[in-house]
Computed example of a mutant assay.
Amino acid sequence: MLVLLPPSETKLDGGDGPPLRLDALRYPELGPARKELVDHLVELSADVPASRAALGLSPRQDAEIARNAALWTAPTAPAILRYTGVLYDALDVRSLTGAAAERARARLAVGSALFGLLHADDPVPAYRLSAGSALPGRGTLAAFWRPVLEPVLAEIAARELVIDLRSGSYAALARVPGAVSVTVLAEHTDGRRTVVSHFNKAHKGALARVLASTRAEPTDATAVARLARRAGMRVERPEPLRLEIVVPA
């Protein structure tokens, strides 16, 4: 089982790992594409106004541009610890110990606009690049990544169940055949259901924690739903490969 997470805009500073080495990352077939984007971001960082425009930043966020300038020299940290925010707070991977922590490191991966796909332990520096960023002189990041990333994800999906928790813009970078997708819905008192926005990440993070640490090895959406229900979640399966987490509005 592979639990595919979205990244976060917010990232931990620093790290105690050596500078970025692309050959130290999992999925080496993505190496040339990774190098192309890292080099492009480093070069772009020399033009601060252009970087702001491409990355959707304000002058108060120029530190993000400085991060990109140092991509080849900054210290690294494991990907699963690099990302922060609501989903990663709910996942709380640092609190897992023993066998549960080992299972989490084996099962968790992150979809990244810069690196394509990262395994939990892959050492990466802090950076700023979103799936919706418009880099000058290039097409969309989805058009860039799809041809190289989809075969990698298809190969993974052929041998194990993938639970895709990515948001829409990151899911657009590459499809995963046969993956189980998850939507969070708020149920109102009149029975209406609406898509959860603000707390969506928290519920997905809680589900990721359950899946990352369980001793079970689910092989389909039904088994994933069963595990979530045992953890106290209300989960429905409206389609064979789609689950809905239903929460009070």
Rank of each mutant, 00 (worst) to 15 (best):
A63D: 10
Y27Q: 10
S112P: 10
A109H: 13
D62Y: 07
D39R: 14
E244S: 14
G168S: 13
L4D: 00
H40C: 07
A77L: 06
V93G: 02
R166S: 04
A99L: 02
L12F: 02
L87S: 06
V210H: 08
A69E: 11
L161M: 11
R193G: 11
E160F: 14
E155Q: 15
L207C: 02
A172M: 07
R82N: 04
R230M: 09
T189E: 15
R234L: 10
P78Y: 03
I245S: 01
D89R: 15
P18N: 06
L135T: 07
L243P: 00
S95P: 05
L153P: 01
P248Y: 09
S95I: 10
Y88F: 15
V235N: 01
R226Q: 04
A142S: 14
L165K: 04
A157E: 10
H40M: 12
D164M: 09
V152C: 05
T214A: 06
A228V: 01
S181I: 08
P218W: 05
L243T: 03
G232M: 03
H188E: 15
D164G: 12
A221S: 07
V152M: 08
R82F: 03
S167H: 09
A221R: 11
K35T: 14
A223Q: 15
V195M: 05
P125H: 02
P125Q: 03
T214M: 02
L12Q: 13
D220N: 12
R52I: 09
A131L: 09
L37E: 02
R237L: 13
A134P: 03
T10P: 08
R159W: 02
S51H: 11
G232R: 14
V180P: 06
L22W: 01
R138W: 13
A179R: 00
R82T: 01
E187V: 13
L135V: 10
D16E: 14
A53T: 12
T97I: 09
D121A: 15
R105W: 12
P240Y: 13
S51F: 06
K35M: 07
R34P: 01
A126Y: 00
